[in-house]
């Protein structure tokens, strides 16, 4: 069984629970941060193998900022060592914002989107897929 470390950065306890149960059942070690700032701290602390990242937390774009900080092209970035960790971003595909985005190296450097509501089977499938391509 896998025992990779997964960091969930999300402010919603219940959603974290809905993800934690299937992930732990699959043998992953799950840690959690409740906002962007704590998330970045935990990345350094835990050095996870994969990050599940929510967009709206204490600020509406906290998730974007976390991903931009982690994937900073700056060679002196404090997150240089963590820039290769796969990021799955949580979204509701049904969005009313006119903003259209997709995984994009420059604007939104994440590896894939996880649709809400969380389907445990799909979650595990995506996690496995991105851990493998690492």
């Amino acid at each position: 069984m896998a025992n990779e470390k997964i960091l969930i950065i999300d402010d919603d306890d219940d959603l974290v629970l809905a993800m934690r149960l299937p992930l732990e059942a699959a043998g992953y070690k799950v840690s959690r941060a409740a906002n962007g700032e704590e998330g970045l701290r935990k990345v350094k602390e835990v050095n996870p193998d994969l990050i599940i990242l929510d967009v709206m937390m204490d600020t509406t774009t906290a998730g974007f900022q976390v991903s931009l900080a982690l994937r900073s092209p700056d060679a002196d970035s404090e997150f240089q060592a963590f820039s290769k960790i796969p990021i799955l971003m949580l979204t509701a595909i049904h969005t009313t914002t006119p903003l259209r985005f997709g995984p994009d190296a420059e604007y939104l450097p994440v590896d894939a989107f996880l649709e809400k509501p969380i389907e445990p089977a799909k979650l595990l499938e995506q996690v496995r897929a991105h851990l493998r391509t690492r």
């Binding site: 219940d14 629970l17 809905a18 993800m19 149960l21 509701a92 509501p117 445990p120």
Partner: peptide, 18 residues
């Protein structure tokens, strides 16, 4: 939306037997 979405996520986790 957001609570309903969480409810649905939790329901799926429960129904999947986790």
């Amino acid at each position: 939306r957001s609570p309903v979405s969480v409810v649905r996520s939790l329901m799926r986790t429960i129904l999947a037997g986790y």
